Computed example of a mutant assay.
Amino acid sequence: MITQFCQDANIKPQIGHGQAIWPSGKYEDYHIHCFADPAAAKAFLDHFGGEMFDPKRDREGGKSAVSGVARANTNASSTLDL
């Protein structure tokens, strides 16, 4: 579904993996789609929903002791439910 959308829209995201650690200590894994073009990111978000993720803003100090881990805040939610 995501691959077909990206092919049809000629969008080429970089796909990574991330992990959120909630204040309760719960861990959640995510597939993260990164876009160089903000318009492509908006098209993807408009189609699939989700939340923007800015590594400089959404990781502790812009970096993490463990690559790909972000401390999630209580206002965040899962990015995409398939």
Rank of each mutant, 00 (worst) to 15 (best):
L80V: 12
K12P: 06
F48Y: 03
G61I: 02
G49C: 11
G61E: 04
G49H: 01
R59F: 08
F5R: 09
A65G: 15
A39W: 04
P23K: 11
W22M: 07
V66I: 15
R57T: 04
A76Q: 08
G16V: 03
Q19N: 09
A9Q: 09
F35K: 02
A72N: 05
V69F: 03
A20D: 02
H47N: 14
F53Q: 00
D54T: 05
W22K: 08
G16F: 06
K42F: 04
D37S: 12
D46V: 06
I32D: 12
T79F: 03
D8V: 11
P38D: 13
M1A: 13
G68H: 08
V69Y: 01
P13K: 00
L82D: 15
F5D: 11
G50T: 02
S64I: 01
F48N: 01
K56C: 11
S77V: 04
A40V: 01
G61P: 00
A40Q: 09
K42V: 01
N75S: 15
A20H: 02
G61Q: 04
D37F: 12
D37Q: 09
I21C: 10
A9S: 08
F35I: 00
N10Q: 08
A76F: 07
G61V: 01
A41T: 00
R71I: 07
D37P: 02
A65L: 09
V66K: 01
P38E: 14
I15V: 15
R59E: 10
P23M: 10
A70H: 02
S77I: 01
G16K: 03
Q7R: 07
N75G: 11
H47A: 15
G62Y: 06
A40M: 04
